[in-house]
C-alpha cells in the first residue's frame, strides 16, 4: 500500500487555514502576518524544489551527486548556525567553526549508519542517505547553535569573573570550564528530552511518515529508535567539538579572554 496522493485542492484547504491564521494575526495586531506569509511561501517553494531534486537524484544515484547535495545542505546549516548567534565570530571564521563541528559529527555518524548498520548496496543509496543526513544535520544544527549562543552570551555576562580567575593564575580551560559545561548541557538537553518523551507525547515525524507510507509499525519503530540514537550521538559530539573549538577562538594563546572579536548582530 502506498500513500494516498494529495491533490492541489487538498493542499489549498490546508493553506486556507494558514490564511485564516494570518487574518486573525492582523486582527489581534500580532504583527506576524508578513512573516507567516513569507515562511509559508518558503516552505512551499523549498519543499517543491527539494522534491524535484530528490526525484532526479533517485533516478541517478551516483556518489558524486549525493555528496554534492550533502555539501549544499551542510553549507546552509552552517549559515543557519551563524544567523542564530547574538554575539558571533564574524565572517568565514565563525561559519567554519559551526560547519566543521557539524561536518565531523553528522557526517561520521551518518556514514556509520549507512555503511555499517543499514548496509544497503550501494551504501549511499540516496533514499536512505539524504533523509538520514537531513535529520542529523537539522538536530546537530540546533544543538550547536544553542550551545554556541549560550557560551558566548554567558562569557560576555561573566567576563569579569572569568578575567578574575585568569588573574589568579587559572588557565583559559579552567576559567571557562563551568560555563562550557552549562553551554554543552543546554545544547544536548533538547534531544535527551525528546528521547525521553518519544512515543508518549508525540509520534516522531519520521515514524509517522513511514507508517503513512505503509510500513509496519514495528519496522517504523525500529528505524525511529535508530534515528534517535544517531541524533543523540551526532548532536552530542557536534556540541562538544564546537565548544572545544569556540574556547580556542575566544581565548588566545596567552590565555586572554578575547571577546573583542565578537560582533553583535542587530
Amino acid at each position: 500500500m502506498g500513500v494516498k496522493p494529495l491533490s492541489p485542492l487538498d493542499l489549498s484547504i490546508a493553506a486556507s487555514l494558514v490564511l485564516l491564521l494570518g487574518y486573525l494575526s492582523r486582527r489581534l495586531q500580532l504583527g506576524l502576518e508578513k512573516r507567516l506569509a513569507v515562511s509559508a511561501l518558503r516552505t512551499t517553494v523549498q519543499l517543491l524544489l527539494i522534491g524535484q531534486v530528490l526525484r532526479v537524484l533517485f533516478g541517478h544515484a551516483t556518489l558524486i551527486f549525493v555528496v554534492a547535495i550533502s555539501m549544499v545542505m551542510l553549507t546552509i546549516a552552517g549559515r543557519e548556525v551563524m544567523a542564530r548567534q547574538h554575539r558571533r565570530l564574524p565572517g568565514m571564521e565563525g561559519w567554519l567553526l559551526g560547519t566543521s563541528s557539524m561536518f565531523v559529527s553528522s557526517f561520521s555518524v551518518a556514514f556509520i549508519a549507512l555503511a555499517v548498520i543499514i548496509a544497503n548496496d550501494p551504501w549511499y543509496t540516496p533514499q536512505y542517505a539524504i533523509p538520514l543526513l537531513g535529520m542529523l544535520l537539522g538536530n546537530t544544527m540546533n544543538g550547536i547553535a544553542l550551545s554556541m549562543d549560550r557560551m558566548t552570551e554567558t562569557l560576555w555576562q561573566q567576563r569579569q569573573v572569568v578575567e578574575q580567575r585568569l588573574l589568579l593564575g587559572e588557565t583559559s580551560d579552567e576559567a571557562s570550564a563551568e560555563i562550557r559545561r552549562q553551554a554543552m548541557r543546554s545544547g544536548m538537553i533538547p534531544i535527551i528530552n525528546s528521547m525521553a518523551a518519544a512515543g508518549l507525547v508525540s509520534l516522531p515525524g519520521m515514524m509517522t511518515g513511514q507508517i503513512l507510507g505503509g510500513s509496519s509499525p514495528m519496522d517504523a519503530v525500529k528505524y525511529q529508535i535508530l534515528i534517535m540514537f544517531l541524533i543523540a550521538a551526532g548532536t552530542g559530539f557536534g556540541v562538544m567539538s564546537s565548544m572545544w573549538l569556540l574556547t580556542r577562538k575566544l581565548f588566545d594563546d596567552r590565555h586572554r579572554l578575547r571577546l573583542d572579536q565578537l560582533h553583535v548582530s542587530s
Binding site: L167, L168, G169, T171, R256
Partner: peptide
Amino acid sequence: PAQLWRKNVGL
C-alpha cells in the same frame, strides 16, 4: 606561560 606569569604578577 601566561598562567604562571599572572600568579607571579598579582593584579
